[in-house]
Structure formats: C-alpha cells, structure tokens
Amino acid sequence: MSRRRIGFWYRFAAVLCKPPLVVLIKRDWRGMEHIPAEGGFITAVNHNSHADPFAYAHYQYNTGRVPRFLAKSGLFKKGFVGAAMRGTGQIPVYRESTDALSAFRAAIDAVERGECVAFYPEGTLTRDPDGWPMTAKTGAARVALQTKCPVIPIAQWGANELLPPYAKKPNLLPRKTHHVLAGPPVDLTRFYGKEMTPELLKEATEVIMAAITRQLEEIRGEKAPDTPYDPRRERIEQRRQTQAQTQPGRSTVREGESST
C-alpha cells in the first residue's frame, strides 16, 4: 500500500472539527509541497497548546495525507473518543509498562505500509517560557533511522494564542491565526547504518529539532535561544537550590572539608 485512505472516521471527524476551527482560527499555511504524495513518512511537529493537535491535523488533512498520531492509551478507552481514535488509526502509547515499546513498533509498521506518522518529539507541551521547542525524546529519530523514511519538520504557532499552555479557557477574541510551515526532509543519511546508541539517537533528534526551530524562527521573525530549554536540567537545578536553602550549614561544612 502506498498511502492510507482517509476513511469514514477521519472524514467524520473532519465534519465535526473543521467548522469550529474555520470560525475560530485564521490560517497561514505554507510548505504543503513538502508533504510526500506517496509512501511512508514522518512529520515532526512542535507542541505548544492543547489545541494545536486539532489545528495541525486540519492542516495535514488538507494535504490529503492524514496523520496517525501517537496518543495516550487512556484516550482509546473513552466511549466516542475512543472509537474515533481507533477508527482513525491513531497509535496508543502505553507509558511505564511492558507495552511501552509497542507504539514504536506500530509506528514502524505504519510507515512501512506507506502511511504518515505524526510525532510530537517533545512528548508534551513545551516548558520553554517563550514557547520555543525544548529538548525532545528520541522516538521519532528511532523510527526514522529504522525505516529510512523522510522526516518532514513542521513548525506551528498560533493555537497557543487561542489556548495558552495549561489554560482552562480560550482567548477567542481577537481571532487568532494558526501559522504552519513545513520544510524539506531532514537529512539524516549520515546516521544510517550505524548502531543506534543513545548518543546517536540524541544527535539525530537534535538535528530534527533544530530544523523545526529554524522554521519557527521564520514564522515568528525572532531568534530562538542558543540552547533549547531542558526540563530535566531545570529540575536538577531546582533540587540543588532547594537543598542549598534547606541545608545551608551542611553545604558549608562540605565546602570547608573539601578545601582542606
């Protein structure tokens, strides 16, 4: 099979979701020519709003190549939502279980069948205070190197202005614009044929995220930070500061001991 048919469930979801999206959001969509017409591929997309999966799915639906998203397994168990997730062929992610790797196997199978799998490499909403892409997980790179499929970097901005991260209520007025810019495939050929060590996967992931970030810079007309926000580093620094505040005497003794 060279490409996945849109199918009943995707068309039904489009009937439900497209009208409110058209009303709520203006569109500045570019780069659709980079979406492959045939064959399996990956899209790697930044994530800055709980609304952007719907806005981005609208963009890609209009290219004729519907995406299969990796989504929390719990969503597949919830009545109509679960039926829609299963019917549209989304891929469940079982976190912290023996089935955790099944999502990557399913993604590889989908790509090899000629489908598109959409990755949010960051794994969650960006924690960067200014909305720039943060450090990412290596799942997209792993699937890309396993299948040698095209990886299309896609930046988006605007859904976060409609529904800011972790906000409970949308900002409906004035009407927001959803900007999307898809770029040419990321060149990962230098990683092909090598052992997929954690270091190699991390480097390939950084190449993918750098491409997404460059496109977001073009959309926003701004320069991103030189170093992506790293939530793990931030947590370590916060723990260090907390320990320094709660155990100042102990810290001083250690410093004195190490200097003798």
Rank of each mutant, 00 (worst) to 15 (best):
E161W: 04
P198V: 01
Q156Y: 03
H34L: 02
Q215P: 02
E112R: 15
R235T: 11
P92M: 07
E33C: 04
A141Y: 03
A110T: 05
E222T: 12
P225E: 09
G64Q: 11
P92D: 06
T242M: 11
K169T: 14
I108T: 10
A140H: 06
A106W: 00
G221P: 13
M1P: 10
Q247S: 11
G82E: 05
E206V: 10
R142K: 15
P174W: 01
D109M: 07
H58Y: 15
Y166G: 00
A55Q: 06
R233Q: 13
P165M: 03
G64A: 13
E195V: 13
A204P: 04
D28P: 05
G114P: 00
A14K: 09
L172S: 09
E195I: 07
M32C: 09
M196Q: 13
R95C: 11
P170Q: 07
M32S: 15
W132R: 02
G131R: 03
D226P: 02
K169E: 10
G256Q: 12
A107K: 00
Q60E: 11
Y166S: 08
H179M: 06
R5Q: 15
Y229K: 09
E112M: 00
E257P: 03
K137I: 03
R127N: 01
F104T: 14
P67E: 02
G74Q: 12
D99R: 14
A155M: 10
V23M: 13
P121S: 00
E237S: 14
A210H: 12
A140S: 11
R142D: 04
A84R: 03
I108N: 02
Q245W: 05
I154Q: 03
K194Y: 12
A13H: 03
A182C: 15
R30Y: 01
V111N: 03
E96Y: 08
T88S: 14
D128M: 09
Q156C: 08
E112H: 04
I236C: 08
M32F: 12
P164R: 02
L173W: 15
N171T: 13
P133V: 06
H58T: 11
T126Q: 00
A107Y: 00
A83G: 13
I208Q: 00
A110I: 01
E122G: 01
R190L: 11
G256T: 10
K169W: 15
A106Q: 10
M32Q: 14
R239S: 15
D130A: 14
L188C: 02
D52A: 04
P184W: 10
R3S: 14
L75H: 10
R113Q: 15
G89K: 07
T246N: 14
N46S: 05
A210R: 14
P231D: 10
T126I: 01
R5Y: 03
F191T: 04
V180Y: 05
A155D: 08
V93S: 01
P228G: 13
A144I: 06
R113S: 10
R142V: 08
Y59T: 00
L70F: 06
Q243W: 14
C17K: 05
H58S: 09
A141T: 04
D230I: 07
T135H: 01
Y192P: 00
I208T: 06
E96A: 10
T138G: 09
T246M: 14
T98H: 12
H47Y: 08
G39L: 03
H47Q: 08
E237N: 13
P67M: 06
E222H: 13
I212R: 01
A51S: 04
